[in-house]
Each structure stands twice: as structure tokens, then as C-alpha cells.
């Protein structure tokens, strides 16, 4: 994570010199970091610390409660809805991120290898221009079992109607797909940026050696794209764990809790069933821990990749 030279051992004299240079840099560095630092402390750090504190209290939305120790956490461990929400969320993330990443790689590589067309890049990003809320409503209409165009089309083509949002086993895949639709362009563009750093002459050389596109994808594109993939995976996965709008608009967690994802459940507990901030905070802390573990693991993997490349 640190800049390239800092990991190399340096002779003692140079180290001392660098040390004093570092100290001399401090005022400028602090000035550079100050505005973002204020924003971070005020709008991220402080709310987080406050939330962690709340998770040990019986606070409601309207009243600051007293310290209750681990009570909220005990309740969480014993709450079947929480565990269900956790399971549902992980299933969602696997589907959403799995599909989205594969498709984004495909799209990015196709854009990179096939065409420079700006129109195609524009089109692929358009779904991101629509808000989550509207996207969810749109697909609710398109995928309606009885009245949706997609089912009408399926039937005309001789297939069976599919209960996208109404079937307990299909609802999460459906929501995952809706969000893949919306975020595919965003993800593909980030990866595309990475692809552009791959020197074209590697491909030229590959072609001279008679390598096929598939072969070049495997031995040139993938290895060099991996670090970018790592970055994109961290960011999209953290976002995916926090899926909320689509569920809130399209299914309200249903049918029968089959799409009650963790952030929706937390929101429900905090804002509509009992205004129980203490408990909602405890579940948020659990989510935070999960996200942190995932991020750390991924950072490790990304760094490992880097060694492959060196």
C-alpha cells in the first residue's frame, strides 16, 4: 500500500536524512489533508464512533438510552431474522458481484479489443444515470408476472412466465440482476481504465507470435488487469453489501423475508419497527466488521497479485 521505495531497506545515513525530510514535509502534508480530514472526522469517524457507542445502549430514535452492555448483541445472535438477513445479503452479494464482475470484464475487454466507439461507451453507462429508486420501479413494471412485458415476451416465444419478484427463490437473483443492469457500465468503465494501461505492443507481439485473442486474454489481459480488478471488487462489494433502495421499493423484504437484506432490516428496526436505535446500531457494527474483514482480505489478495506481476 505504501509507495514503492518505502519498503526497501535504506542505509542508516540516508534513512536519517529521509526522516528529517519527512518531518519537513509534515506541514505541507497536513495542509493538503486538512479539508478532507475535517470531512472524514465529522461525517465518517464521529458518526461511526457514536454508532458504536449507541450499540451498547437502549437508545431509540427519539431518546438517548442508558448503557446496557452486550444486550443488543445477545439479541442479535438470537434473532432469526437477523441471521436470515445475513444469509440473504451474502447470497445477493455473491450473485450480484459475481455476475457484474464477469460481465464488466467481458464488456471492458470487448470495448478494448473490438471498438473505440464512444457511442457504445455512452450507452453502457446510461443505466447509471437513472436513480436506484426509479430503476427498481421500472423493473417491477417490466418483470410483473402477469402484466410485465418480459413475461409477455417469454410466453410469446413459447416459454413459461416467471415470477421474478414473487418467488422466494428468484427474488434475490432478480434484484441482483436489476442492480447488475444499473452498475455494469460503471464497473466496466473502471476496468476499461485499467485495460488502457496495458501497452498495445504486448498485443502486437502476441499477434506476431500467432496467439489467439483468447490466448492473449489469458496471458496478457487478465494478469495485467488483476490489480484493477482488486480495486473494483473492493469498492463494488462494499456497495453491494449495502443494497437497500431496490429492496425497499420493489419487495419491502418480501416475499416472506426472502429479500430482507441486512441494511433494509437495520433501516426497518431503526425507522419503522420500534425506532430501536440501539439494536439497529449493533447490527450496523456487525455489518461494519464483515465489510472490514472482506476489505482486509481483498487488500491482501491484491498485494499478492502485485507480486505475481513483478
Amino acid at each position: 500500500m505504501s509507495a514503492e521505495t518505502s519498503t526497501r531497506p535504506a542505509p542508516p545515513a540516508r534513512a536519517a536524512r529521509r526522516r528529517s525530510q519527512e518531518v519537513r514535509n509534515l506541514p505541507a502534508a497536513l495542509l493538503f489533508v486538512l479539508p478532507a480530514g475535517v470531512g472524514f472526522v465529522v461525517f465518517f469517524l464521529w458518526p461511526t464512533l457514536r454508532g458504536i457507542w449507541l450499540s451498547f445502549t437502549d437508545s431509540t430514535a427519539f431518546n438517548t438510552g442508558g448503557f446496557v452492555g452486550l444486550e443488543n448483541y445477545q439479541r442479535m445472535v438470537a434473532d432469526p431474522v437477523f441471521w436470515n438477513a445475513f444469509k440473504v445479503t451474502i447470497w445477493y452479494v455473491l450473485l450480484n458481484i459475481g455476475l457484474q464482475t464477469v460481465l464488466a470484464v467481458v464488456v471492458a475487454v470487448l470495448m478494448h479489443r473490438l471498438t473505440q466507439s464512444m457511442a457504445i461507451r455512452g450507452i453502457i453507462l446510461t443505466p447509471y444515470l437513472v436513480s436506484n429508486v426509479v430503476a427498481a420501479m421500472l423493473f417491477l413494471m417490466l418483470l410483473d408476472y402477469q402484466l410485465g412485458f418480459v413475461n409477455e415476451l417469454a410466453e410469446t416465444l413459447g416459454g413459461d412466465r416467471i415470477m421474478f419478484f414473487g418467488d422466494q427463490s428468484l427474488v434475490i437473483p432478480t434484484i441482483a440482476l436489476v442492480n447488475v443492469w444499473r452498475h455494469l457500465g460503471y464497473t466496466a468503465l473502471l476496468l476499461f481504465a485499467g485495460l488502457q494501461t496495458i501497452p498495445e505492443n504486448l498485443y502486437e507481439a502476441g499477434r506476431v507470435d500467432g496467439a489467439s485473442e483468447v490466448r492473449m486474454f489469458r496471458s496478457i489481459t487478465m494478469p495485467l488487469l488483476r490489480p484493477y480488478l482488486g480495486l473494483v471488487l473492493i469498492v463494488t462489494m462494499i456497495g453491494s453489501f449495502q443494497v437497500f433502495d431496490t429492496v425497499s421499493v420493489a419487495t419491502q423484504g418480501g416475499p416472506a423475508n426472502a429479500s430482507n437484506v441486512i441494511q433494509y432490516y437495520i433501516y426497518q428496526v431503526a425507522f419503522s419497527r420500534g425506532y430501536d436505535f440501539g439494536y439497529a446500531s449493533a447490527m450496523s457494527v456487525a455489518l461494519l466488521v464483515v465489510l472490514a474483514v472482506i476489505a482486509v482480505v481483498q487488500f491482501r489478495l491484491t498485494r499478492a497479485n502485485q507480486n505475481d506481476m513483478a
Binding site: Q146, L147, G166
Partner: peptide, 16 residues
């Protein structure tokens, strides 16, 4: 359950 995602206004309105 799940055949219609919208309420009876749309259901009756659809003629189904």
C-alpha cells in the same frame, strides 16, 4: 401470491 405485483386497481384494469 406473486402473480400480480400491483394491487387490484391494476389487476382489474388489466382485464385479467
Amino acid at each position: 401470491a406473486g402473480v400480480f405485483s400491483e394491487e387490484t386497481l391494476t389487476q382489474v384494469g388489466s382485464g385479467k
